[in-house]
Nucleic acid binder design. Structure first.
Lengths: 354, 354
DNA sequence: AAAGCCGTCTCCAACGTTACAGGTTCATTG
DNA sequence: CAATGAACCTGTAACGTTGGAGACGGCTTT
């Protein structure tokens, strides 16, 4: 069944059917009704492939993520899909698994399917494979950093704000010994988060301890390894900031295994504020980076390019601390002793809660 | 740039280029080399849309899931993608969010893109919208149950085995009061899990308490609500089985909030064994349902139909208990008292561990 | 030497749609 | 009443690929 079948049944030409479907205003409402009736009776719907071939427009927006298994990404994908579908696009998701070969495949997939724009949300970009997209003038969106060319937009995440809030929160509680478990150092966003952390530390007059700057990999296992490294160290921090929530969950797990109580013995802060952060034990204090904002900024940037209507080069994304129960006074302080009496004094230190 | 450009550069006809790309054996190796060289020099790759239109084959396998935000599904998607790509297919994922209207959209997407097969992994099927696919002879795979027609395969999950192992594990520890938080009752798989649970209970001579059969919804929040309901009940079970891991995480969270220690005061068993189950606190005893098995059975079934080579009607999927630390002796038993002395006696009760 | 037959190539008609260039109809106008 | 033009319709050439129908050498067979 194709457009011809519909045309025959409605007694119009296929061109009219096409124009009806595409809601071109110059079609007589009477005819349009006949066409729609025929469409309904036949259960017809257009063939996307043929449509794309004819029009030269695929109506596809690509999304490349690094690890679909990290809960942050599904939440992002869902937001991206919602916004894209509302704008009349379909989406094509691909996961690189931090593997350059797979990244290559992903890019190729996007190219073959003629995606009209691709959001690369891997937080670490493999330049050579991206070049293929740049050369073919596919609109692109990156996080944080990317080549400065027309057709490319950047989602500028304000890591500094949320991370500073986190460090200040810890400092206010009395922490002076704070570790940081980062993402892979070759990822630009990991570097940015570290910078924000050390800068915030400086602002609070807290010295940076090299030993406590640990490279993780944004996975559960990375968090566990990071925590092991901290436990094996010569001295122990009273608080740990993590570059993402999965890392924090790993830290929480390892701390539990080691018999450390959170937050009495150790405070932990995550980053991303994934949905599950509120349900882990104890509920995780985390720097929120809105998936919805990220997703809609990405789609909007891509649309702006694809439909050529004044795209911006940069889209700011805010971050913000959400205080829950994984942070408290450092062990051995007055406040800590008080804590044993009061039910949950850390509540009073809460900035944002739910 | 198109196939013609390549043909010109290699000094052959477009048909030869097409046949070279598709590795048809009847092309002279000399020519093939010329063609491949031209392809490489130009950076050419075929247009998937045109290809699909010409050949009538889209090379797309669809995957419909109910909630991409539930960690079980991303793990499934990844497996599905791996297997599909290895078999030369691309995948198209869509998430219904338990919303019939979105389900409709998903189906339509699959139809428009001419998917050669669709795996519906929603664990609860909305008959009317599925019919469109059935009518158009799209090969389908369902979980547990589906219409008995050619072109449709079923993934028969052996819920009974894993759940019985769970109940037996609890019974062996001495539990007699076991609650069950199910999935949405209108989902067939939820029903099957309940059946397996009550049957296993009967096998162990444990009475079923109606009050402790609670309807959840496979989300974190559902687990929290389920636990609230249990806490509000007239009597309290010593163990809870959950229909999936997210529910169990919710239970763990609420138990923590209520000041209950796991497993000393309450044992909890999940279902799915998501990756994070090993990292929650305490590590969750769970019934494992292999995503890899599920994914590869789904792809194989779809391929068998699409390439018409002896498809099976049913593909069995096994489940198995993985014992971790969220289960222990019920409170107030001799063993429980012993437990206070020994470091981690529950270890001895472990069937499978890691 | 004619016939037959491979192996390998080219030509060209689909595939289902869009979009543009013309048509046709019909009311309005001088 | 013919001319005008707006409104709306139809015909058809793309779009990039596939795949079947032949064509064309060069080889073997009779």
């Amino acid at each position: 069944m194709d457009i011809r079948t519909v045309a025959d049944r409605a007694n119009v030409s296929i061109a009219t059917v096409s124009r009806t479907i595409n809601r071109i205003p110059s079609v007589n409402p009477k005819m349009a009704k006949r066409v729609w009736d025929a469409i309904r009776e036949l259960g017809y719907f257009p063939n996307t492939q043929a449509r794309a071939l004819g029009s030269g427009r695929s109506g596809i927006l690509g999304l490349v993520v690094s690890d679909i298994t990290n809960p942050f990404f599904p939440e992002l994908i869902q937001g991206f899909e919602d916004v894209a579908v509302k704008s009349g696009y379909e989406i094509l998701v691909s996961s690189t698994n931090y593997d350059p070969a797979r990244m290559e495949m992903c890019i190729r997939r996007m190219l073959e399917r003629k995606a009209e724009g691709v959001a690369v949300m891997t937080f670490g970009i493999d330049q050579p494979s991206i070049d293929q997209l740049v050369q073919r003038n596919v609109p692109l969106v990156f996080v944080d950093v990317g080549p400065d060319r027309p057709g490319i937009s950047l989602l500028k995440v304000n890591y500094h704000r949320g991370i500073r809030q986190g460090v200040q929160h810890l400092a206010a509680l009395g922490h002076r010994n704070i570790a940081f478990i980062s993402g892979p150092l070759d990822q630009h966003s990991a570097q940015e988060r570290i910078d924000a952390f050390s800068q915030s530390l400086a602002e609070c007059g807290i010295p940076l301890t090299k030993e406590w700057l640990i490279e993780g990999d944004h996975t559960l296992e990375g968090g566990i390894r990071g925590m092991e490294q901290i436990l094996a160290g010569s001295s122990r921090p009273s608080a740990i900031m993590c570059s993402n929530d999965m890392t924090a969950v790993g830290v929480l797990h390892k701390a539990y295994k080691a018999g450390l109580r959170i937050p009495q013995d150790l405070s932990v802060i995550g980053f991303d504020d994934i949905h599950m952060a509120r349900a882990v034990i104890p509920p995780l204090t985390s720097v929120q980076m809105s998936r919805i904002d990220l997703a809609s900024a990405a789609v909007n940037a891509l649309r702006a390019h694809a439909e050529s209507k004044s795209p911006h080069r940069e889209y700011p994304i805010e971050t913000q601390l959400v205080v829950r129960e994984s942070t408290g006074f450092p062990p051995g302080t007055m406040q800590h002793l008080q804590r044993k009496v009061a039910a949950q004094p850390s509540r009073s230190a809460r900035l944002v809660a739910r």
